[in-house]
Nucleic acid binder design. Structure first.
Lengths: 327, 327
DNA sequence: GCAACGTTCTGGAGCGTTCCAGTTCCGTTC
DNA sequence: GAACGGAACTGGAACGCTCCAGAACGTTGC
């Protein structure tokens, strides 16, 4: 009645072979006859044997486990990326564990450390909040890939992000094509992705010859005031949550969307379908980004160089963007 | 230029003491003089030593890591619970790792197995999708606490959930007090929590002497049709997402909320503030639930019995519920 | 009939840590 | 000055596994 978790030694004893052979058999390694292997497998199963991941890792030097660190769990955006990673990891026979950092760079860095303490084989950071320094530092301990735009870092860190320039361009062009000329940008933080979207907003406005000044601010009230004053008829928001807040504020202010105001978000989260009007948004291919991140990581594990991949976004048109009101 | 991660042996060599002493010093164990301890600490720090969690776990038989399994990452509801758990875990000096099961009982069971393969000290399951059998089975391998209502299981599994009866009662009573008599229930799945809410809906309707029949269905269209027919003026939805869909459908159908239709959700997720009108909802004390789950788990680790705790929800009134339209 | 070979299997060392039973050293006490 | 006791420290076994060198055995070829 030993309540002990069975080990390969137990299996070996039951099968009348050495523990080494059990190890080989269970790992599908060559050098074990088919019949013996089958017998060992059956006995292991019978005993309820499960391999002890970390004992294995300790002995083998690899754990076949990768860590995923995400910004926070609240974000609908990050989770699809995680799914992409996990699907690819499953296919590659890797296990994943998650951790998250509550949107706080300090916590993120700490959790990244914890993850690496577990001696996972590598870490994928799904967050743009970690400084290049922190990433480079972590990369000294083990392979690191970041999903999310960063200012370019040490070439030891792999990265995947979407092309924010293209995304912003798609959004603004779409609004312009609907006849809007007074387009504002509801901007995000000062992180690289937001910066890029902001810069691309300006560039596109200029390229399309739309009349200056181009209103850019990070504050809903200012935008609403501008709409009321007739100085803005459409807004490109730097993400869906901001767009949702703007939508709420517009309805509160009696501004009809898309009648008086066209709105385009970014990230194509599930919010887009829950809000009314449904939100036009720029979609990042999140699953694909996750897959690519894992591919970069496995290459890194195989001794390859860290590379950066940039994927293309596309615009999903829904109800929040319509023709410009005739002036 | 050994790129090797430093071990206690390296630290011991550098400090000119035995590895045992280093181990003691780093763990703050007694039997080390203050000066030696300080010296060892300094040297460890210097070398960038970090303890190898799983080697430690292997030797000590405990890892000080607990696993958290969640339903899926998309759910705004679960994430606060996780935060509650993690905050408590931090305070208790435990590390956490997450995993999730994509809303699929099969995947959940598999991930639960993976988590236990990592030989974490215990697992908290934040999902109501796992069968009592699966939970009991997992509990044989190690301590398990579930957050979310389950039909009562083996007394080896700890549990926390909110009092759905009280929650449903609060919602219906609120609507009744506003003058609604024709209240429908937009029901959830057949899981225990939904069942309980449904049953409590009926019980409350009866207790309040509201006229039968009490419409219960899980389909938005039917509810909308009933509102159109004048047979329903208010809806208690089994969760916020369902309520959000109903809100969308109502607006699509030209039904004004709360004018023609009062809506109350459940879970008080962030959706409640993003939607218009803002959603009245029943709040579960999610942080508290997470904390309690961890408390139960640590008691379990200490050899205590598994217990079940039920916490009280409360109603948060917002804009989606207003006085009944005069008939 | 014997060497050479391939296949299957074994024993022991080692991964980084903890734990336990000692050992050493120093200050007290009688 | 011998005996004791406690604090500080050490060495080796153990945790469950992998890896490697080599043993055992049957086949093949000459």
């Amino acid at each position: 009645m030993s309540s002990h978790r069975p080990t390969i030694v137990d299996v070996a004893a039951a099968a009348g072979v050495s523990k080494s052979l059990v190890s080989l058999a269970l790992r599908d390694a060559p050098g074990v006859s088919a019949t013996t292997r089958a017998r060992i497998m059956a006995i292991a199963d019978d005993l309820g044997y499960r391999s002890h991941t970390w004992a294995r890792a300790l002995a083998a030097g690899r754990s076949q486990v990768i860590g995923i660190l995400l910004n926070d769990l609240h974000s609908a955006y990050h989770t699809d990326i995680v799914e992409g990673i996990e699907r690819a990891a499953d296919a590659a026979g890797l296990t994943t564990v998650l951790s998250h950092g509550q949107r706080d760079p300090k916590v993120l860095a700490q959790r990244l450390g914890h993850l690496q303490d577990l001696s996972v084989d590598g870490v994928i950071v799904v967050s743009a909040l970690l400084s290049p320094d922190a990433l480079a530092h972590a990369a000294q301990r083990g392979p690191v890939v970041v999903v999310g735009r960063t200012t370019q870092v040490a070439d030891t860190v792999g990265a995947v992000w979407n092309n924010d320039e293209v995304g912003a361009h798609l959004a603004v062009e779409h609004l312009a094509r609907l006849g809007h000329t007074r387009i504002a940008h509801l901007a995000g933080s000062h992180r690289p992705a937001s910066q890029a979207r902001r810069a691309a907003f300006h560039a596109t406005m200029t390229a399309l010859d739309l009349p200056a000044p181009h209103l850019v601010c990070d504050d809903t009230d200012t935008v609403i005031a501008s709409v009321r004053a007739g100085a803005t008829t459409a807004v490109f928001a730097s993400n869906d949550t901001r767009a949702a807040r703007l939508l709420g504020a517009a309805l509160d202010a009696g501004i009809s969307v898309p009648g008086d105001l066209g709105v385009v978000g970014y990230d194509n989260t599930e919010l887009t379908e829950l809000l009314r009007p449904r939100l036009t948004s720029v979609d990042q291919p999140r699953h694909e980004m996750g897959q690519r991140a894992l591919a970069i990581l496995t290459d890194l594990l195989g001794g390859g160089p860290a590379r950066v991949e940039v994927v293309a976004p596309r615009l999903i048109v829904r109800d929040s963007s319509g023709p410009s009101p005739t002036p």
